[in-house]
Structure formats: C-alpha cells, structure tokens
C-alpha cells in the first residue's frame, strides 16, 4: 500500500458515495446513465469473485464488499426505486458495442487462460470504457451536467490516474508490473482527460459543465 493507491481507493469510494447521495437526496437519478452503472456493477462482480478464493487483507475485502454493495444499491435506485426519474431516452449508448469486444479481448489477451483470470481481465477492460455511456449522455443531451455529477466523474476519473502513479511507484519499489492493468488504466484515464480539462476550467470557477458533442 502506498499513498497513491490509498488516495486513489478513497477517491473511488468517494465517487460511489457522491453518486448515491446525489440520487438519494434529490430522490432523482436524472442525468445519470443507468447503463454505465450496470457496467460498473458487472466490473465489480467479475473482479471481486476472488473474495471467495483469496484473502489479501481486511482492508481489501471490506473495500470490495463496499464497492459491490454501493454499486448494487445505485443500480437498484436507478432501475427500481427512482425509475420514474431515470432519463432512459437519453441513455442510448449501445452497451453491446463495448461488452462484446471487451469480452473477446479478455479471452484473447490475458495473463492466464482460466475462468477467474479471464473474468478479472474482462473487468479490467470493461472498467476502462464503462464511463462512456455516461459521458455520451452528457454530450448528447447538450444538457448541462449537474455540478454534483461532475464531482462524481472527477472523483471516479482521478482514482485511476492515481493508480497509474501507484503502478510507477510499485514498479520501482517492488518490481511489480501488471501490463494488462497498466494499459487499461491508461486508456481509462485518457477517456477522462477531456472531462478533467472542462472540470478544472469550468466547475472550479463555479460554472456548470457541458461536454460538446
């Protein structure tokens, strides 16, 4: 554990809490992509199956359970409790265009051809692109994203950027090097770059955020 990873994990946790609180307090999931949230739930489900097979640390296990739980609650709020407020007409990204290639890639490019390992690889690849329906939704509607949604996206994006710093640190300190995670993590962070720029130049100056189509 190093400071980059710890702050990254806390940022990841903060993102999930921000989203849950936003939906719960406003009793509405307007502007939130249910498709992105379903993909994130798939990411956690396929990656954290190792809860049943391997124990790393109490911290590790607790965080995994919390991520799974928060993610399921978010999906539940969007598709059941506050379904009436879900903006499905604008959440039109074709998820199969992401899931199918990602599944194929996970089968072809992995560390080891085993069930759990392929699911882990699938989750890493899927996470890197899972935010696209959300970004697509914001840019497509031309609507301004709520500031709280921007905070959520920033926290979620910066988490993987911090993981890149963590990987550089671990490479020099431990000789640790996970090619799949690093490449996918870089792709993931690059997808957020445009948003980061807009976030810093607009939201931090008190304006609302629009992503140009």
């Amino acid at each position: 554990m190093n400071i980059f990873r710890l702050v990254g994990d806390l940022s990841h946790l903060a993102a999930l809490i921000i989203l849950l609180l936003k939906i719960w307090k406003s009793r509405s999931c307007a502007g939130v992509s249910g498709k992105s949230q379903i993909m994130f739930a798939m990411v956690y489900m396929t990656r954290y199956l190792d809860l049943f097979t391997t124990f790393v640390s109490v911290y590790n296990s607790v965080m995994k359970v919390v991520f799974l739980l928060f993610s399921f609650v978010t999906v539940y709020l969007i598709y059941f409790k506050f379904k009436a407020t879900y903006d499905g007409n604008h959440d039109t990204f074709r998820v199969e265009f992401l899931v199918v290639p990602v599944a194929g890639l996970a089968v072809l490019v992995n560390h080891e051809f085993s069930f759990l390992e392929i699911l882990w690889t699938f989750s890493i690849y899927l996470e890197s692109v899972a935010i696209l329906p959300q970004l697509f939704m914001i840019s497509k509607t031309g609507c301004e994203a709520e500031t709280i949604t921007s905070h959520y996206l920033f926290a979620l994006g910066i988490y993987r950027a911090l993981y890149i710093a963590n990987w550089i640190f671990r490479y020099y300190m431990e000789g640790f090097f996970d090619f799949i995670a690093i490449v996918a993590g870089c792709v993931q962070t690059i997808l957020y770059c445009d948003f980061f720029y807009l976030y810093v130049t607009k939201v931090w100056k008190g304006k609302r955020l629009t992503i140009p189509a």
Binding site: H12, W120, D178, F179, A181
Partner: peptide, 10 residues
C-alpha cells in the same frame, strides 16, 4: 511479464 497473482489491488 512479472505480475503477481492473486491480484492485490481493487
């Protein structure tokens, strides 16, 4: 490639 399993990151 030198990577560790089990995966110890989140």
């Amino acid at each position: 490639l030198n990577h560790f399993r089990p995966h110890d990151e989140l």
